[in-house]
Computed example of a mutant assay.
Amino acid sequence: MPAISFQSVSKVYPAAGKSGAAPLKALDNVSFDIEEGEFFGLLGPNGAGKTTLISILAGLARATAGTVKVHGYDVQQDFMQARRHLGIVPQELVFDPFFTVREALRFQSGYFGLHRNDDWIDELLSGLGLADKARANMRQLSGGMKRRVLVAQALVHKPPVIVLDEPTAGVDVELRQTLWQFVAALNRKGHTVLLTTHYLEEAEALCQRLAMLKKGQVIALERTSTLLNNATANVLYFKTDNALPPELAAQARTTGRIVELPASGPAEIEAHLAALRQAGVAVEDLEIRKADLEDVFIQLMNAPAIATPPPTTTAGVLS
């Protein structure tokens, strides 16, 4: 039985504003399963439908069509059982300003009928670096500390399925490392993790399998290693203070002084270098490397639309 199952899920929002405007199709026939024990990544640009899909999974929105199940429980028809199996860390910082950290976790435990949960609360506080904040009022915490409390609240009832919706957005390096160490340990113990993130290096390092959404459709559903191995392009990486010639600028991904140019093979690498020399572009720290997940992501997002969605295969045996 899959830990999470999305089957033919569509979501259409009514037209807003002027009469005659077209309805918005946020999700279009999305289907895939996440197996028990997987660390699964859900990726896509802003507006791709990730948050809508998570909202349907959490019961905060209703699908226009299709079914969503958590450990076999339908999130609408068997909502109480589905919620018990699910812990969700939202993007937004939502907290009660009247309670201390420990009180907030005790209240959260009570929602699931857990009356003597302090041993697990202590473990969460320690694992997430919150032990010295247990008696602090939620209003006194920094944004990063509030984010840690949200993670603790999602885990307080020991759900077998954990959903992390942009959990490291705007937080410091220490929190990111602490969070991933703790969540990776839970995953090794058998918890299923669904992660949405714009930090693709995190997805590449953590996720065994990925789904990529574009305009509400699944355009890729594959093991992370397979996606990377199928990327035939190399990347020419260098730093420069000069403007690139137009034919290279159109292909390049530029961040400040850093330039990354895709190249399909040695001949194209040499052609890029010749064009740089001819244009008088001085380069530093020149490297040739394999494409990473960010390169694959950009390539897939810029590819022409396909007529039919990819096969909705499941994970199989995890390596």
Rank of each mutant, 00 (worst) to 15 (best):
A63R: 12
R289H: 06
R148Y: 07
D78K: 01
N187R: 12
I288P: 07
A220W: 07
R102K: 14
T197W: 11
P160Q: 05
Q7L: 07
A231W: 09
D285Q: 15
A267C: 03
L273N: 01
K146D: 02
P160S: 03
A134S: 03
G127L: 13
L261P: 08
A154T: 13
R147S: 06
G44K: 00
A250H: 10
A16T: 14
E123Q: 12
K290H: 10
E260N: 04
N229M: 11
A252V: 02
I298W: 03
D165F: 15
D96P: 08
G216H: 08
A26S: 13
T224W: 01
V235G: 02
K158V: 05
D74C: 07
D292G: 07
G265H: 04
I269K: 01
P304Y: 05
H191C: 08
E36C: 03
A267E: 13
N229E: 15
L276T: 03
Q299Y: 10
L24R: 14
G87F: 01
I219M: 14
L248C: 04
Q7M: 04
N117D: 07
E166R: 11
M1F: 04
F107M: 13
G37L: 07
R257P: 01
V70E: 06
S142L: 00
A154W: 02
K133Y: 14
A16D: 09
L179V: 04
R176I: 06
K158G: 03
F99Q: 14
L318H: 14
K50V: 04
G59A: 04
C207I: 02
N229Q: 15
V193A: 07
H198I: 00
V283A: 11
S319D: 14
E268F: 08
I298T: 06
S319W: 13
H191P: 00
A279D: 06
E284D: 15
V156K: 08
H272P: 05
V283P: 12
G41A: 13
A169Q: 14
R223T: 09
F182H: 11
H191G: 01
P266H: 13
V235L: 04
S319E: 15
E103P: 09
P160E: 02
